[in-house]
Amino acid sequence: MDLQLKDKVIIVTGGAKGIGEGIVRQLANEGAVPVIVGRKEADNLKLVNEITGKGQQAFQVVAELTQPESAEETISAIVSTFGRIDGLVNNAGVNDGVGLENGSYEAFVESLHKNVIHYYLMAQHALPYLKKTKGVILNIGSKVADTGQGGTSAYAASNGARNALTREWAVELLPYGIRVNAVIVAECYTPLYQTWINSLPDSEKKLEAITAKIPLEQRMTTAEEIANAAVFLLSPRSSHTTGQLIYIDGGYVHLDRAINS
Score class of each variant (00 low, 15 high):
residue 1 M to C: 14
residue 10 I to C: 03
residue 10 I to M: 04
residue 16 A to V: 07
residue 20 G to N: 09
residue 22 G to R: 06
residue 24 V to D: 09
residue 31 G to V: 01
residue 38 G to H: 13
residue 39 R to T: 11
residue 40 K to W: 02
residue 40 K to E: 08
residue 49 N to R: 15
residue 54 K to D: 05
residue 59 F to M: 12
residue 65 L to C: 09
residue 73 E to L: 14
residue 73 E to I: 07
residue 82 F to Y: 15
residue 93 G to H: 07
residue 100 L to S: 15
residue 107 A to F: 01
residue 113 H to N: 15
residue 114 K to R: 14
residue 120 Y to G: 07
residue 127 L to M: 11
residue 129 Y to M: 03
residue 133 T to V: 07
residue 137 I to G: 01
residue 139 N to A: 06
residue 140 I to S: 03
residue 150 G to Q: 11
residue 152 T to K: 10
residue 153 S to T: 12
residue 153 S to E: 10
residue 156 A to T: 14
residue 163 N to K: 08
residue 165 L to A: 09
residue 168 E to P: 05
residue 169 W to K: 08
residue 176 Y to L: 04
residue 176 Y to D: 12
residue 179 R to A: 03
residue 181 N to E: 10
residue 181 N to H: 08
residue 182 A to K: 00
residue 186 A to W: 00
residue 191 P to K: 06
residue 195 T to L: 14
residue 201 P to M: 05
residue 203 S to Y: 14
residue 205 K to G: 12
residue 206 K to M: 10
residue 207 L to G: 14
residue 208 E to R: 13
residue 214 I to Y: 02
residue 215 P to Q: 08
residue 217 E to G: 11
residue 219 R to S: 07
residue 220 M to C: 08
residue 222 T to I: 04
residue 225 E to L: 05
residue 227 A to D: 07
residue 242 T to R: 01
residue 243 G to M: 02
residue 244 Q to R: 05
residue 250 G to Q: 08
residue 253 V to R: 10
residue 254 H to G: 11
residue 255 L to H: 10
residue 256 D to F: 01
residue 259 I to Y: 06
residue 260 N to Y: 00
